[in-house]
């Protein structure tokens, strides 16, 4: 039986590409979607050579909301699984200084991903099957001075995924929320991250493949993050506001 393809939104990201490898290795055809889809031709070639799966490239702009329905229509086949790895962290200081920039961060991490997943959710619901995977962030668990613009968008996205899962639970469509902690990607390059808390993109990818297979709801890639976030969530606000996190 041939498997339905996996759609990767934000396929040029390190996590998106790693997810593509992980699913192709499991025998899934892959649809790679990114703003600059042409830049993915080497990745397509590589994936096809390695796994012998069909890989297609699709131009997708998360912020062009009006094109999202058309984008899904243009896919050669409605995917069985869709993974949204779209995201943009920006510089917190720039976002603070310029609310217009902040808005772009909010839109890239919440509005755009929520819109495309909403379209896909409706199609999947109509079909009565499918898995939606949203890569959110532990940054959305509690706003911190150093990262709250990005964090608040991710908080919105996490709540959206939670609601979507609730809505579709009876419709045969499953929703996975991924809360990776630190991941060694282009986004975090040059940051001084603690090794024990930092996952490789391949780890995130295999956790996602496992989560779709086992129909897990919310996953932290490295289990230690569950503990770390439990602590951070439970610090009383009068104390929390004075911390330098």
């Amino acid at each position: 039986m041939t498997k339905l393809p996996v759609l990767i939104l934000g396929a040029r990201s390190d996590i998106g590409l790693a997810v593509a490898h992980a699913f192709a290795a499991e025998g899934y055809p892959v649809q790679l979607a990114a703003r600059n889809a042409d830049g993915l031709s080497a990745a397509k070639n590589d994936l096809e050579l390695r796994y012998g799966q069909t890989v297609t490239l699709h131009k997708f702009d998360a912020l062009a909301l009006e094109d999202h329905a058309k984008f899904i229509d243009s896919l050669p086949q409605l995917p069985g699984i869709a993974v949204c790895a779209v995201g943009f962290m920006g510089e917190q200081s720039t976002s603070e200084a310029d609310p217009i920039v902040a808005t772009e961060v909010l839109r890239s991490n919440f509005e755009g991903p929520a819109s495309i997943l909403a379209h896909l959710a409706n199609r999947f619901e109509h079909r009565g099957s499918g898995v939606l995977v949203g890569i959110s962030s532990v940054a959305g668990e509690r706003g911190r001075a150093t990262n709250y613009i990005y964090g608040s968008a991710k908080a919105g996205f996490t709540a959206f995924l939670s609601g979507l899962r609730n809505r579709l639970a009876g419709a045969g469509v499953h929703v996975v929320t991924v809360l990776p902690g630190f991941v060694a990607t282009r986004m975090t390059e040059g940051m001084d991250l603690p090794a024990k808390l930092t996952a490789q993109p391949q780890e995130v990818a295999s956790a996602i493949v496992r989560a779709t297979r086992k129909r897990r709801n919310i996953i932290y890639v490295r289990p230690i993050w569950q503990l770390v976030m439990a602590v951070i969530r439970n610090i009383p606000e009068p104390v929390f506001k004075k911390l330098n996190l």
Binding site: N45, D46, L49, R50
Partner: peptide
Amino acid sequence: TVHMRHFNKMLAF
């Protein structure tokens, strides 16, 4: 040290 981990694509077979 130049880490070559991003040069990890197969090109042709």
